[in-house]
Structure formats: structure tokens, C-alpha cells
Nucleic acid binder design. Structure first.
Length: 597
RNA sequence: GGCUUUGUAGUUCAGUUGGUUAGAACGCCGCCCUGUCACGGCGGAGGUCGAGGGUUCGAGUCCCUUCAAAGUCGCCA
């Protein structure tokens, strides 16, 4: 086996496979690449050669060179070869219109086998049906597939465009530490034990938040960074424990300035990489409006089915499910699946009910109008007048399906209807991957009430500035206070978030106070920041985009794993290297760590 | 931590109320083939049915435990 492999000495590549065209005919060229496919036809052998740019056909003719032909006969898929040859035009009847290089082929004069290859566990092709589990175990093979190469090269181009944008807009690129002080608030930290400080730990950054604010205090004015971030929380299709952010911060700005840079960046990026025009200004929507119309702070605006409050219409009917919800502080709300009533059989509605039960709603009440015949799951509980009132309120007409959820908790009504409208759009195949609907969600609540611990927590982070006009409620009605915090949402996915920060030390200590952080706690955790603010802080604010999510949407992938070279799977392990793993006691002893059995 | 789905050849799957030697396609190997490009034709190899235990005369199929993967709720300042 070994003596079959040859060296590359003296064989210097002149071209990439996918770049050659018919204008190159008669040129002598040298190519390197992977054997995509071998097609022997008796005295002729065709080889498709692949590199990162594409594929091209090589041809070997037994009559012209028997030794070379025999060598080519022994090639197999994924062998790595170098060839010298001449570009030939194909006869008209031998052209392949499905191939970029289908007008030409290479008549080979020299062949070197640079590496042999065993049969791969799956074929190196697009449109394979191989499970992700197998693909990830052999990720290095999966990454040979043109689709994956395309995704990662797209990502490279996007990152490059992003850097250009921020350079051109006067941002300074600065790295912040990967080993930093643990922050028990928010997501769980990935901890790193310190050898030199027995029993002490660093944490990997969840975000460079504090450092970037300090850079503003230092006067860098505009900073950005491609920041790797780590959060030890459970995974989702759009959530990896290790991810990349385009992180930036600006001084002497207000909300509008940050949002303006955001939308200009998106416009630049989409134009440069996809040649797609993002129209400015991007629509803005206050948090409260997003929640009441779409039941989500990351609404997908590619389809309708907005949420309609019918609490007032049903408050006095005889259906206790509705009346109980309303009288106990909750609500009854509906979405009108306009024009699709005939797509939802009784069974389909049952499965939607199952779906919402999974998100804590107790069930769905429904009305259906097919061919002007109305069927309704709750009409026996109310008079015609009330029904007509509901129909009018929801614009319920022939062909429509009305789905109603009632609960004593508004949050359950809204979030389940919000999830339901997305699920319905998915089932009706109403979502177009090539359509990009942006929305800027603004005026997030300043505080979030944690029912479990009966306390207020900062919704964004404790350095977020409240809106000045709401400050008067901060003692009397804290939940009413809105923050100068905003998100960018694309097609129902949160692409990133940011805020104007507090730059006044007194306001900052008030905020710590409000979220139940004592002076001592605050000093212990953020003393350096509080100190820093004493020496002067410019007004500042910033933002961070999730690069992985952005790439996922831009290439039309449904999982982050398709735009990350070596991703983690659902339980946060990596199938290829099989990490995390046990470490030997020597390593643990040095760190003074013992594992509890 | 909870819920749902999945696990059978290298890969993707089928496998009936529990019943003979577990099948197909693609891939792989061999032979034939001078214009293929998802080449074609003929022949062949390939299985711990995720693992362990149980019920049974008999288990891929039923039960229990466990492992792995996907989605999701909680969680993600």
C-alpha cells in the first residue's frame, strides 16, 4: 500500500478544477484533488476530480497510453491525486450542461497517486440522506461535501465583509480575555481551574460585556471584535454552547445611533454576500406590541395569523374555561388561520392541541367555516349574539379557522399562540427561506419578575439603562419600567441584542439595589466596574450579533451545525473527538481537584 | 430534569397477529464494456437487528433497564 503513494515533488498546481473553462483549451495544466467518481468504459476511463472550487472530468485512453490507463484503473473514490494534462474541448454530443466545466475535459499525461483512501462510511455527495450522527462522527469527511464547503466559504466571505464594514466605520478591533472572572448571574459558566491559585477558577466568557464597556471608558470610542462566547446551557437547533458574536460598542450614542449602525451593517452584509437589498429603515416594534400581536419577542413576520384579544367578547358567556381565565387575571385570545380551514381536519386540530399542551396551554377551542358551514367546539356554551361578536372581532369568514386559547396566565396564552402561529405556518409551508423579514424589537422591559424566587431580575443585564421617562415608576411599579434595550430579529430568530448602558454610578448602584444585590455583593462581583465609573464614563451602548445564527439564515440551513465546522451535539459532546472525556489523576492532582464518585 | 421521535448490512430504509435461512436500494469487490457524467451489463461479499436482562417451545417484533441521536419545555443575566 505504502509504495503506491507518490510524492508531489515537481508537480506544482497551476489551476483549480472548478475554475477552468473552454477558453483554457490546449493549455497544459496541473491539477490536484480528490477522486469524486471513476467510470471505466472498457478502453476509456473517466475520472471526476474535485477540489474546493468544483469538479472537472479527466479522461484516460487505453490506446494512447496503456501504463497510464492501468494506473488510472486502480484509482478509487477519494484517492488524492495530482495530474498533468491538456485541456480539451468536448465533442458537442459529449458535453454536460449540468457541470460548470462540462464543455471541457483534461486529457491526462501524468498521474500521481498522492494518497490512497479506504471506502468512506458515506458517499461524499450533496443530497445524501446520512444521519447527522454519522456525518458528525466523520466530520472531516462531511466537510468534503460541496454543500459544507460552500457554507463555510460563505461564512468566510461574510466574516470578511463584516470586518470591512466595521473598519470602514471607524471601529477598532480589540481582543478581550478568554479566561475571566466567573459571573454566577445569567447562564452557567464554563469553569477553568487555576493551577497557580489552588481552589480558584476562571470562567470562559459568556460575552465580553464588561471589557467592552471598560474600553469605552478608556476612550477607544468605537470597538468591535469577533468574540467567541461560551454558555453551559442545554442546546437547541439554534443554540450551541460555544458560539461566535460580532460584538461592538460605541461611545457618545443613544438608541437610534446603535440601531442605525446595526441596520447599515445588515444592509452592507446582505448586499455584499447575497446581493440582497435590505430596505432601510428596518421596521421597529416595541416589545409590548410584539408580544400582544405575535406572542413572541422574536416574531416571524413572513406570515400573518396575528393574535386577537377576545377577552371582552367572552367575559360574560357561559363557557367557564373562558370566563375563569378572564376573571382570574388571564385572557382569551385567538388567531384566525385565514383561508386554510379546509387544511385542518379534526385530527389535524387534535395534533395542534397536543402541540400547545407541550407548551403549557391546556387546550384549544376552535371554529371552522368550510363552504359557509360553521362547526365550532364551544358553540353550545354561548348564545348566537356572543358567537357573532367573536366572529366580528376576529374577522371570521368563510374558509377560516379560528383557534382560541384561554388561560389564567397571559404569558401562557401569548406564548402558546405565538408558537402555534409559527407551527401552523410551518405545516402550511408558508415560510420562504429566501425571504428575509427583519424587525427591530425595542423598549424591552427593564426587569423581569422571577416567580420562582419572588424577585426582580434584570431582563437584559444589570448594566442596561432604563428609559428616562419611566424612571418615576422605579420604586412604585418596577415592572412598568422599560429599558433602552433592543434586539434584531430575522424570520423569527433572534440575531442579537444590545442596549444603552448605564454610565451614571449612582443610577448603577440603584439598579443593583433593585435586583437585590447588596453593596457588598456588588462590590465583590463588579467592584472593578463600579470603581472604573468613578473616573468618568462616556455615554455608551452597543450590540452583539450571533454570527452562527446569521449564517444559518443566510445560507438557508435549519441548524447551526451546518455552518459550524466542528459543532457539538445535543448533549454538548463532540462526536468526532469524543469530548468531553475523563482526564488522568496526574492532571487532576496538579489542579487539586478530585472527582466525587 | 421533563416530554416526543428514532436506533435492523458501509449508508438509507422495509420487515405482517411473535414462527423456516432477516430483505431492498445505493455503496463495495470481481469480470465485461471506447464517450460516460446518478454510465451500463453479469456475478459476488457483506448482519451481535444499539447494549443488557426478562416473558415464551420460539423475540428484530412483547416487557423492563440502559446507551446513543434529533426536536422541544424548563434553562439560555
Amino acid at each position: 500500500m505504502l509504495n503506491m503513494t507518490e510524492t508531489i515533488n515537481g508537480l506544482k498546481r497551476t489551476n483549480y478544477c472548478g475554475d477552468l473553462r473552454k477558453d483554457d483549451f490546449n493549455k497544459e495544466i496541473i491539477l490536484t484533488g480528490w477522486v469524486q467518481r471513476r467510470r471505466p468504459l472498457g478502453g476509456l476511463i473517466f475520472i471526476t476530480l474535485r477540489d474546493r472550487t468544483g469538479i472537472i472530468q479527466l479522461v484516460f485512453n487505453e490506446e494512447k497510453n496503456k501504463t497510464l490507463f492501468d494506473k488510472a484503473y486502480n484509482l478509487r473514490n477519494e484517492f488524492i491525486i495530482g495530474v498533468k494534462g491538456v485541456v480539451k474541448l468536448r465533442e458537442d454530443n459529449a458535453k454536460n450542461d449540468n457541470m460548470e466545466t462540462g464543455d471541457i475535459e483534461i486529457e491526462v499525461s501524468e498521474l500521481r497517486v498522492l494518497s490512497q483512501a479506504e471506502n468512506t462510511p458515506f458517499e461524499i455527495l450533496d443530497n445524501i440522506t446520512t444521519s447527522e450522527e454519522v456525518r458528525l462522527k466523520y466530520r472531516y469527511l462531511d466537510l468534503r461535501r460541496p454543500e459544507m464547503q460552500k457554507n463555510l466559504i460563505f461564512r468566510h466571505n461574510a466574516v470578511r465583509a463584516a470586518r470591512e464594514f466595521f473598519y470602514e466605520n471607524n471601529f477598532i478591533e480589540i481582543d478581550t480575555p478568554m479566561l475571566m472572572k466567573p459571573t454566577p448571574e445569567g447562564a452557567r459558566d464554563y469553569l477553568v481551574p487555576s493551577r497557580l491559585h489552588e481552589g480558584k477558577f476562571y470562567a470562559l466568557p459568556q460575552s465580553p460585556q464588561l471589557y467592552k464597556q471598560l474600553l469605552m471608558l478608556s476612550g477607544f470610542d468605537r470597538y468591535f471584535q469577533f468574540a467567541r462566547c461560551f454558555r453551559d446551557e442545554d442546546l437547541r437547533a439554534d443554540r450551541q454552547p460555544e458560539f461566535t458574536q460580532i460584538d461592538f460598542e460605541m461611545s457618545f450614542v443613544e438608541v437610534d445611533d446603535v440601531l442605525d449602525i446595526n441596520q447599515k451593517f445588515l444592509q452592507y452584509l446582505f448586499k455584499k454576500t447575497l446581493n440582497y437589498d435590505v430596505e432601510l429603515p428596518i421596521q421597529r416594534m416595541p416589545y409590548r406590541e410584539a408580544m400582544s400581536r405575535f406572542g413572541s419577542d422574536k416574531p416571524d413576520l413572513r406570515f400573518g395569523f396575528e393574535i386577537i384579544d377576545i377577552s371582552n367578547n367572552v367575559a360574560n358567556c357561559d363557557f367557564s374555561v373562558f370566563t375563569n381565565a378572564v376573571s382570574n387575571g388571564g385572557s382569551v385570545r385567538a388567531i384566525n388561520v385565514k383561508g386554510y380551514a379546509d387544511k385542518f381536519s379534526r385530527k389535524a386540530i387534535d395534533s395542534l392541541t397536543e402541540f400547545v399542551r407541550g407548551i403549557r396551554a391546556s387546550g384549544i377551542a376552535w371554529c371552522k367555516n368550510v363552504n359557509n358551514e360553521i362547526s365550532c367546539s364551544f358553540n353550545k356554551f354561548m348564545n348566537q349574539e356572543t358567537l357573532d361578536d367573536i366572529y366580528k372581532q376576529t374577522n371570521f369568514e368563510n374558509g377560516d379557522l379560528l383557534l382560541i386559547i384561554a388561560d389564567q396566565k397571559n404569558s401562557i396564552v401569548l406564548s402558546s399562540l405565538g408558537a402555534l402561529r409559527v407551527e401552523i405556518a410551518k405545516r402550511l409551508e408558508l415560510v420562504n427561506k429566501n425571504e428575509f423579514k427583519f424587525v427591530l424589537i425595542t423598549e424591552f422591559p427593564f426587569l423581569d419578575f422571577d416567580e420562582e424566587n419572588n424577585e426582580y431580575v434584570a431582563m437584559h443585564h444589570p448594566f442596561t439603562s432604563p428609559m428616562i421617562e419611566d424612571l418615576e415608576y422605579i420604586e412604585t411599579d418596577p415592572s412598568r419600567v422599560r429599558a433602552k434595550a433592543y434586539d434584531v430579529v430575522l424570520n423569527g430568530v433572534e440575531l442579537g441584542s444590545g442596549s444603552i448602558r448605564i454610565s451614571n454610578p449612582e443610577l448603577q448602584s440603584k439598579m443593583f439595589d433593585l435586583i437585590g444585590l447588596t453593596k457588598e455583593d456588588a462590590n465583590e462581583k463588579f467592584g472593578f466596574l463600579i470603581d472604573a465609573f468613578k473616573y468618568g464614563a462616556p455615554p455608551h451602548g452597543g450590540f452583539a450579533f450571533g454570527v452562527d445564527r446569521l449564517m444559518m439564515l443566510m445560507v438557508g440551513a435549519t441548524s447551526l451545525r451546518d455552518v459550524i465546522a466542528f459543532p457539538k451535539v445535543q448533549n454538548a459532546s463532540e462526536l468526532m473527538t469524543n469530548s468531553p472525556t475523563n482526564v488522568d489523576n496526574l492532571q487532576l492532582n496538579e489542579l487539586n481537584i478530585s472527582i466525587k464518585k
